[in-house]
C-alpha cells in the first residue's frame, strides 16, 4: 500500500520521505526548512515532542499567534489523519484554524504520516469521512494531493500558485494509528 501511495504522490509532484526514526525526521526538517516552521497542535507532532526537538536542532518554530506569524513562515508541519493510495492523497482534518494556516500559507508543507494509515481508495475512505463528520459539529476537511498547481496560462502546468509549492510527506511508522487524529 505504501508503495502505491508513494508512486501516486510522486506522479502529482509530491515528495515522499522515509523517516525511520524521529531523529531522522528532525534532521530532514532542519535541513529542508530554510526559515520559520509553523507547528499547529496536531497529536502526532505533540507525541514526538517535535517543537522541542526542532528548536534544539536550531529550527525557528512558530507554535502560537498563528495568524500573525504564518504569513511570513517558510514551511508548515502538520500530521495526517490518513492517506489514499490510489490518488496519492493525504486527508487532513483541519477544522482547527492553525492547521489550515500551516498548510495553506507557507511555500512548503511537511506532512507527517504513519504508513499504517494508508487506505486503498476513495471507497474505503468514505466511512472514515463519515466518522469525521459524526465527531464534529463544524468541519473543515482537506483532501490534499500534491502541491498547489495551475494551468491557467496557455494550459502549461505550473506548480505553486497560491498554496504550497512543495509537499513533503514524511513517512514514519509508529507515530499514530488513529485515523481520527492528525
Amino acid at each position: 500500500m505504501t508503495g502505491a501511495f508513494v508512486a501516486a504522490l510522486e506522479k502529482v509532484g509530491g515528495v515522499a520521505v522515509n523517516c525511520d526514526t524521529p531523529k531522522h525526521l528532525v534532521g530532514y526538517l532542519a535541513e529542508n526548512a530554510p526559515g520559520a516552521v509553523v507547528l499547529p497542535p496536531c497529536p502526532s507532532l505533540q507525541r514526538l515532542d517535535l517543537a522541542r526537538h526542532l528548536r534544539a536542532a536550531g529550527v525557528d518554530v512558530i507554535d502560537d499567534d498563528f495568524r500573525r506569524h504564518a504569513p511570513m513562515a517558510t514551511a508548515g508541519l502538520t500530521g495526517v489523519n490518513f492517506a489514499i493510495a490510489a490518488t496519492g492523497t493525504i486527508v487532513l482534518e483541519s477544522t482547527a484554524e492553525p492547521i489550515r494556516l500551516a498548510s495553506t500559507l507557507p511555500p512548503i508543507h511537511f506532512a507527517l504520516l504513519d504508513p499504517r494509515k494508508i487506505v486503498a481508495d476513495s471507497a474505503v475512505a468514505g466511512p472514515l469521512l463519515r466518522r469525521m463528520h459524526a465527531r464534529l459539529a463544524q468541519t473543515f476537511l482537506a483532501y490534499i494531493t500534491g502541491p498547489s498547481r495551475t494551468a491557467d496560462i496557455e494550459r502549461v502546468l505550473t506548480i505553486g500558485v497560491h498554496g504550497p509549492k512543495e509537499l513533503h510527506v514524511l513517512l514514519c511508522e509508529g507515530v499514530s494509528d488513529d485515523f481520527m487524529e492528525s
Binding site: 501516486a8 490518488t87 484554524e97 463544524q138 468541519t139 482537506a142 483532501y143 494531493t145 498547481r149 498554496g163
Partner: peptide, 23 residues
Amino acid sequence: ATGQLITSYVSWIRGAVPCGDGS
C-alpha cells in the same frame, strides 16, 4: 474536466468553523 485523477484540493466545509479568536 482536466484529465486529473483528483484535483490538488478537495475541501469539505461545514458550518461556522473557527476563525481567529472566534467563529
